[in-house]
Design a binder for these strands. Structure first.
Lengths: 116, 116
DNA sequence: CAGGATCCTATTAGATACTG
DNA sequence: CAGTATCTAATAGGATCCTG
């Protein structure tokens, strides 16, 4: 496939849109080991507010990547887990993680060189 | 590595930050076949303004992923190409592209099901 | 605990016009 | 053509309070 075709394809745009939301990939990755409750996700991820986490989960749910499971009662207990489709995204996300571990220091070095 | 460690690592955050800017991955991908001039990139990508393209290129340059080469004269001729570091990112980006081609239709189906 | 409703701020990108 | 300046609209995200 050509670069042009790739960029023009709406599915490719879709993939980029998924990535363009800061927390999408982070939350998906945090769910890799199985369903989690919101409070657990917040602890695990760190630095994400309740509101933003909820919005992110709704977005992922809307895109068919995450499913919500409510175990009724009080206090409420809700879990979010990856769908089959969501699990297929773990591999590409993992590829980025691997890249970050391999080359992250080079990026940081470039940043310091550029700003100093 | 554990999920916690992955998420806490600043290099991982870095990777996610790279992705969180809408056009970063698109522009990197558009440069995969070799250096391009800004006007060529705009045509190839489509839907990106001169200003946003310039900002994106500066950002990528700052992160050591892209390098600028000016061939002086009038009219000015400038080319942007991937650095060695930038080229290492093509593989993970390609993984996402492949995912989009394989599963993009499922995401779109989920969106329609959710909104309808 | 889950998560909705508000308010507020910083950032982004798009449009346009202009300079060298 | 390359790139900047300016203005504006949209949005993400943070903080906070409140409800079931």
């Amino acid at each position: 496939m050509t670069t042009d075709a790739f960029l023009a394809d709406c599915r490719a745009r879709l993939a980029f849109d998924l990535l363009s939301h800061t927390w999408n990939a982070v939350v998906l990755w945090a769910l890799r080991d199985g369903p989690r409750r919101p409070v657990e996700l917040r602890e695990q991820i760190g630095g994400i507010s309740s509101k933003v986490l909820t919005e992110t989960l709704r977005r992922l749910q809307f895109n068919g990547l995450v499913e919500r499971q409510a175990h009724g009662g009080a206090p409420p207990r809700v879990e979010y887990g990856l769908t089959a489709l969501g699990r297929t995204l773990l591999e590409p996300i993992g590829a980025f993680g691997a890249w970050a571990f391999a080359h992250g220091d080079e990026v940081m070095a470039a940043q310091e060189a550029g700003s100093g």
